[in-house]
Design a protein around this nucleic acid. Structure first.
Length: 495
RNA sequence: GCUCCGAUAGUGUAGCACGGCCAAUCAUGUCAGACUCUCACUCUGACGACUGGGGUUCAAAUCCCCAUCGGAGCACCA
């Protein structure tokens, strides 16, 4: 068959292995996609999905990827200056370098230009209605008095808006849609409002007092950027219907859209960016990379590999169903990468000292990795440290083995004492006795920061040589060695 | 209230646009066993789902209707 019809074989393989993660994209000509975050906080796991999926597609189809900062709200979702770079950093970490970076707050004049054109086409009008008044009219499918005030008047009023003639809340520019549209969400929506708070970016500052809302800014940008495909949350599904009015007035072609549902991560529950910001300020979290947070920076600091995160995100696929997922799958993915390369070490949490009678001081030789070779040497005297968890289940008379050291028999619980009873591992195997790990009494002070708290204890020497690497603390889990200055600080990866 | 979506095992997904090959895929999880000087890794096996009700049809996870449940929008937030 290989000889007769290799292409058939190929086809067979493809049929058997359909697109596991992302569905194929319908493309006419070229592909341009964008990832459009608001930099009001650092990238989260949710952002990672956007970065990964968009870049996966542009990579697959040789398209162009744009990162666009939708930072047009200086107040409610005020951008954070550091976050712009954080996004770029995290993109790189995830293996993606956007082909172009666009910052909306740099391009306000472009939006003004389109706004004016829309007014000239009688597709937008300046409205002075109070919010509640307009809502009441809208709910009854009734136009407000400003809707038909005429193009010339609108142009004048728009100029006045731009020249700061009005206060906040006093005037807005609305897009004329269909005031009787069956879906109230579509009726004459607001495109620009007045904000006098300066923008946090120094280069922008108080230059503008009229700011576009997302639906307007996004609509114009997607056209200017030549976006062919948009993937966004289904909470923005109405955006398309709203934005299409602009596209119709301007004679533009609307990009293809795809949506995904809301993601809830089991381990983190619902943490909003603003809530986290507050908690950090109050000192509840140590910072945006606190291991308890669902930010990319935190995940990275914990030693999750970007390839694992990518695969995890791609396997989620593209569904409009809301999903609530557990990170177990991500951890399993990461373990596959990390387990073959992570060196093993002993770390004893909540250590308890154990005295061993009849023991000769010696140097334990333990493998650095169960299958890759390499040896670590740990000198021991007549005392070792073991975990309180283990001690709590010990009984006097019980025989067990200190891993990679020798066999002992418990002679007392408090204080904890044991006696040396030989080095032969077979004895332990025959008795199916336990094997526990231990640490030398003069080991390193180790702190492990994990999503569910902090573990402190003692680790064997040598860990300090693994700075910035992921290792496995035997019978504990994987950790990334974060610092070794004053004792070791490790970030918990997963079990 | 008005307008949209969506619903496959504990979780996430494949299959659904062109009904039969689906007593339903893969991954993760859980349990049991093997291996192992780690409660890790690996291996083996088991567990486990088409939301419900009608209809169309020789045949429905796939098409239609209703119900239920879940989500979103109706902001001068993104």
């Amino acid at each position: 068959m290989k000889k007769l019809a290799p292409e058939l074989l190929e086809e067979l393989k493809e049929k058997k292995e359909p697109e596991k993660g992302l569905p194929p994209l319908e493309i006419n000509g070229s592909l341009v996609m964008r990832f459009a975050p608001n930099p009001n906080g650092p990238p989260t796991l949710g952002s990672a999905r956007g970065i990964v999926v968009n870049s996966e597609y542009t990579g697959r189809y040789n398209g162009k990827l744009i990162i666009r900062f939708d930072d047009t709200d200086p107040v409610t979702k005020r951008p954070m200056l550091e976050a712009y770079d954080w996004y770029l950093e995290d993109c790189l970490w995830l293996g993606t370098k956007p082909d172009e970076v666009i910052i909306a707050s740099d391009r306000i004049p472009l939006y003004y230009e389109t706004a004016e054109q829309l007014i000239r086409k009688d597709g937008a009008y300046v409205c002075f209605c109070k919010q509640e008044v307009f809502k009441a009219l809208k709910d009854e499918k009734k136009a407000c008095p400003h809707r038909e005030q005429g193009v010339e008047k609108n142009l004048g009023l728009w100029k006045d808006m731009l020249s700061s003639c009005y206060k906040e809340q006093e005037a807005v520019l609305r897009i004329k849609t269909d005031i009787a549209h069956r879906d109230p969400a579509i009726r004459d929506w607001v495109a620009f409002r007045i904000i006098k708070t300066p923008h946090p970016r120094p280069s922008v500052g108080d230059r503008y007092c009229v700011w576009p809302l997302l639906d307007f800014e996004g609509a114009i940008e997607d056209h200017l950027c030549g976006t062919t495909h948009i993937i966004r949350g289904k909470d923005l599904i109405d955006s398309e219907r709203r934005q299409r009015y602009i596209y119709k007035y301007m004679g533009w072609a609307y990009p293809k859209t795809l949506h995904w549902g809301r993601v809830q991560i089991y381990e983190f529950g619902k943490l909003s960016t603003s809530a986290i910001k507050k908690a950090i300020a109050e000192g509840i979290y140590t910072g945006w990379d606190d291991p308890r947070l669902p930010t990319i920076r935190a995940i990275r600091r914990r030693g999750i590999r970007p390839e694992a995160l990518r695969k995890f995100m791609i396997d989620l696929g593209l569904g409009e169903t809301d999903i609530s997922l557990s990170l177990d799958t991500l951890y399993a993915e990461n373990r596959k990468i990390i387990d073959p390369i992570a060196n093993r070490y002993f770390f004893v949490w909540s250590p308890v000292k154990m005295e061993i009678e009849d023991a000769e001081p010696k140097v334990a030789k333990a493998p650095l990795h169960p299958s890759r070779g390499g040896i670590r040497e740990i000198p021991v005297g007549t005392e070792v440290l073991v975990c309180r968890d283990d001690v709590e289940t010990l009984k006097v008379g019980e025989r067990l083995r200190l891993k990679d050291l020798y066999n002992i028999q418990i002679t007392g619980i408090s204080p904890l004492r044991a006696k040396f009873i030989g080095t032969d591992i077979d004895l332990i195997k025959k008795e199916k006795a336990r094997i526990i790990h231990w640490a030398p009494t003069d080991g390193l002070k180790v702190r492990v920061l994990s999503p569910d708290g902090e573990y402190t204890g003692t680790g064997e020497r040598g860990i300090e040589k693994e700075l910035d690497r992921v290792v496995q603390f035997e019978r504990f889990g994987f950790v990334r060695i974060d610092s070794v200055d004053d004792g070791v600080v490790a970030y918990f990866t997963h079990r």
